[in-house]
């Protein structure tokens, strides 16, 4: 039987959506509590790592394809750069905080910082899952990566 025992599989089934939810919570509250883009992205990636550990790579691929993870990674960098460049066009500075500041200690505050954190979170999630796959699945000399 592929993967680990049935106990680990069932608990993984139950936990993986909640891990995703928790990662997004950390990303979205990065400007209010400790955390932010990087830890939230690591949590999101660790959900897929958990699926890979418990079930084997097919289920994890069904949830997030390898090509999709690189697309997500590029998308994160793109969001970050576009936000930075919009600052130049709107007011003249790189990374100008051009959005209204909102209420302090609520979820909509601090201008563009949450949006930047979303970009960072997507980038880190994609990158860490890709790094995990590259380190684990494609051992040097044993298995060549097949062209898609």
């Amino acid at each position: 039987m592929k993967g680990m025992t049935i106990i680990v599989k069932t608990i993984t089934k139950f936990l993986s959506p909640l891990i995703i939810l928790f990662g997004v919570y950390i990303v979205l509250h990065g400007h209010l509590t400790p955390g932010g883009g990087f830890p939230g992205g690591v949590m999101i990636a660790s959900c897929f790592i958990l699926l890979t550990l418990a079930y084997g790579k097919e289920i994890a691929y069904k949830k997030l394809k390898r090509s999709t993870s690189s697309v997500i990674e590029s998308l994160g960098v793109l969001i970050f750069l576009i936000l930075a460049l919009l600052g130049i066009f709107v007011g003249g500075y790189f990374f100008l905080n051009f959005l209204p500041l909102g209420h302090p200690l609520k979820i909509i505050s601090a201008g563009i910082i949450p949006l930047c954190y979303i970009g960072v979170g997507l980038e880190v999630a994609g990158a860490i899952f890709a790094v995990f796959l590259a380190l684990v699945l494609f051992k040097a000399g044993e298995e060549k990566e097949k062209p898609q």
Partner: peptide, 10 residues
């Protein structure tokens, strides 16, 4: 309570 016995079992 969910994760700790599972880790021990593994």
């Amino acid at each position: 309570v969910m994760t700790s016995p599972t880790g021990a079992h593994a």
